[in-house]
């Protein structure tokens, strides 16, 4: 198809303008709002005791959910791509549940299972491990909602890489463990890295499922997204402006992970 230059450039302008309006503008606006009263004001908002507690809770949630879902994700992707068992199809469908079910419902279902009157709730409570309305429940909820990202990023890469390199490694004497660490993992690392970025972004940003199982007590069960929501409802200087600062804090955290992963797994042209 021949497209006249005038058309080509106006199409690009429309596409970019649309994205800018929809995606870039709100994010930039938050940055501007965060620093409109200077850097130190913003810094004060993110260093209140409640904000520091929320920061560490969010870091804790991500620090548990991301490695767990990465290990699970790579393992499950291997099963989905490599195994020929009949359970594979069921597994494939199950993995997408967190994508298709509303996070609020996921939170509610956790209450049903682990709550005071839930199936296993009293068993855990009797042993001094309360889950619902505690950080543990928030971690569980986050693991649940961010579960599919890594699987869905790694599986297609694994498919494309194929099994020939692994077979070659086997004929050269490598055990299956050695083959995994030296051949499989390095060849899918771009997929894993991107999966980690997406999982982290979701783990840090998740609010729906987490809100349901949180007791919403500042300083103990309020993560950064919950703090943003809380602050937007508070009138005065500690309110919306503080929420902007927390929002920027979240964005910066996700950005750091994105940059770190890009450095760890640089894009290569030689996928094969």
């Amino acid at each position: 198809m021949v497209v006249r230059p005038a058309w080509k450039y106006s199409l690009r302008a429309v596409a970019l303008g649309y994205l800018a309006l929809l995606l870039l503008a709100p994010v930039v606006f938050i940055f501007i709002k965060t620093f409109e009263h200077g850097f130190s004001t913003a810094w004060d908002y993110v260093t209140t005791p409640a904000a520091i507690s929320a920061f560490w809770l969010s870091v804790l949630i991500a620090a548990i959910a991301v490695p767990l879902n990465t290990i699970f994700g790579v393992g499950t992707a291997m099963v989905l791509v490599r195994s020929k068992t009949r359970g594979r199809k069921i597994l494939d469908a199950l993995i997408d549940i967190p994508f298709v079910v509303s996070p609020v419902i996921i939170g509610l279902s956790l209450i049903l299972v682990y709550g005071l009157h839930g199936w296993f709730g009293s068993w855990f409570i009797d042993r001094g491990i309360p889950i619902i309305f505690n950080p543990l429940g928030m971690i569980l909820a986050t693991v649940f909602v961010s579960l599919p990202f890594c699987v869905r990023e790694v599986a297609p890469v694994l498919m494309e890489v194929g099994t020939e390199q692994e077979q070659a490694a086997a004929t050269l004497g490598a055990s299956s463990g050695q083959t995994f660490w030296r051949i499989t993992l390095p060849s899918i690392r771009n997929g894993v890295a991107y999966g980690v970025v997406l999982t982290t972004a979701r783990a840090l940003g998740e609010i729906g499922a987490v809100a349901v199982v949180s007791s919403n007590v500042l300083g103990s069960t309020v993560s950064l997204p919950l703090l943003v929501k809380y602050r937007t409802q508070v009138p005065g200087p500690g309110g919306v402006s503080a929420a902007y600062a927390t929002g920027t804090e979240l964005a910066v955290m996700s950005l750091i992970v994105l940059v770190a992963m890009t450095l760890l797994a640089p894009q290569r042209k030689d996928a094969r």
Binding site: E164, Q165, Q167, A168, A169, A170, T171, G173, A174, S175, I183, P186, S187, R268, D270, A271, R272
Partner: peptide, 20 residues
């Protein structure tokens, strides 16, 4: 016996080079 234990060298049509 597994391939590792057979003391063989195998060459594939599409090289199976370790890309990384």
């Amino acid at each position: 016996a597994r391939p590792q234990e057979r003391g063989i060298g195998f060459v594939f049509q599409h090289y199976a080079a370790f890309a990384h």
